[in-house]
């Protein structure tokens, strides 16, 4: 395997890590509205991800930074091309982070409600927009001979991409519901399981449609295998949820996320951003990548530090392994 192929895989791994982890915390944010009946229950949900959401989000920053280092042309075309959707995602992530940290810092009713509204929308919008963005990457966008994106924001809102957005939105919400079932106690745990049952079916319907469409557009034999794994894992997650095996259900919805991301990257390879204007102008793993020296250097860095990161992040999840119920929520701070 050549280094730029390895880096294609590593970028896929980083996005998989990001969608696996922030996928469920987006889901939790979305479910604060539908699943929780009162403020205490909303706090139960928020606190299941409290210690970890920030670490989850760094997977995105690392995916961004690694793309910059390993595929500068991809980084440049992608983020200047998808300008306005990315702006919206950034605004959401800014407000969302502040919302988690500041919501409980004052006791005012309006203060809390406003931040809760913010948590809902700033979880929902990126969950949808990442799907739109990735669908467009796979489908291809207008790119000229100078590797510049020549389309407008309306080019990004095509039916295929919008369906991609619906898939990530429903899949992350499903994944979040299973996380809630795994991490909470009492009533809300039951409701999370029931919600997951419904969400899983909706996700399965749209995901099969979308991944099938992807196969028709640009699929390969290997991506077909990944699609099959994704669908099987999704059905497995549904079955495990029905059987009350919460750990398995969550692990399998995570596997669905991973296999779905893998199928998209496999469908994409060896392009990284196909041009719909002229296939000769597509960005590929070869023409968008860094020099061999940089790729080799970054490979060593990734090889040493990625396992370390996975190790201490896993330890964090172990430290906060206890389920949370309404009885664990302390009284709000009085200020």
């Amino acid at each position: 395997m050549e280094l730029h192929d390895l880096w294609f895989v590593l970028i896929a791994v980083l996005w998989t890590g990001y969608f696996f982890l922030e996928g469920f915390d987006f889901g939790i944010g979305i479910l604060t509205r539908a699943l929780a009946r009162d403020e205490k229950e909303r706090r139960v949900l928020i606190n299941t991800i409290g210690p970890v959401w920030d670490g989850n989000e760094v997977w995105l920053l690392t995916a961004g930074g690694a793309t910059f280092a390993a595929f500068p042309e991809w980084y440049a075309t992608l983020f200047s091309g998808f300008y306005l959707p990315l702006l919206l995602i950034l605004v959401c992530l800014i407000v969302r982070g502040v919302a988690f940290e500041y919501r409980a810092k004052r006791d005012g009713e309006r203060w809390k409600r406003n931040w809760e509204t913010a948590i809902f929308w700033t979880s929902l919008l990126p969950a949808f927009l990442w799907g739109v963005a990735f669908a467009n990457i796979v489908r291809g966008v207008p790119i000229d001979a100078d590797k510049e994106f020549t389309g407008g924001v309306l080019d990004l809102l095509n039916p295929y991409a919008l369906l991609g957005g619906v898939v990530t939105l429903t899949l992350f919400t499903f994944h979040g519901a299973l996380f809630a079932a795994l991490k909470t106690l009492g009533d809300i745990r039951e409701r999370a399981r029931r919600a997951a049952g419904v969400l899983g079916l909706v996700t399965a319907a749209v995901a099969v449609l979308f991944l099938g469409w992807t196969q028709v557009l640009t699929g390969s034999g290997t991506s077909a295998v990944a699609v099959a794994v994704a669908v099987a894992a999704l059905l497995g997650a549904l079955a495990a949820n029905r059987a009350g095996r919460e750990g398995w259900a969550f692990a399998l919805s995570g596997a669905t996320v991973a296999a779905a991301v893998a199928s998209l990257f496999l469908a994409l390879f060896p392009d990284v951003m196909p041009s719909t204007t002229d296939p000769a102008w597509s960005l590929t793993v070869t023409n968008a990548s860094s020099s061999a020296y940089t790729l080799e250097l970054m490979s060593w860095v990734a090889l040493v530090f990625t396992p370390l990161v996975v190790g201490y992040q896993a330890w964090t999840y172990w430290v906060f392994r206890k389920r949370i119920g309404t009885q664990h929520i302390p009284e709000p701070v009085r200020h």
């Binding site: 690392t62 930074g65 910059f68 595929f71 500068p72 980084y75």
Partner: peptide
């Protein structure tokens, strides 16, 4: 600059 400038940025995120 990506080939040069991206490397410390990626290290910053990862490390």
């Amino acid at each position: 600059v990506g080939d040069v400038f991206g490397a410390p940025l990626a290290m910053e995120a990862l490390i």
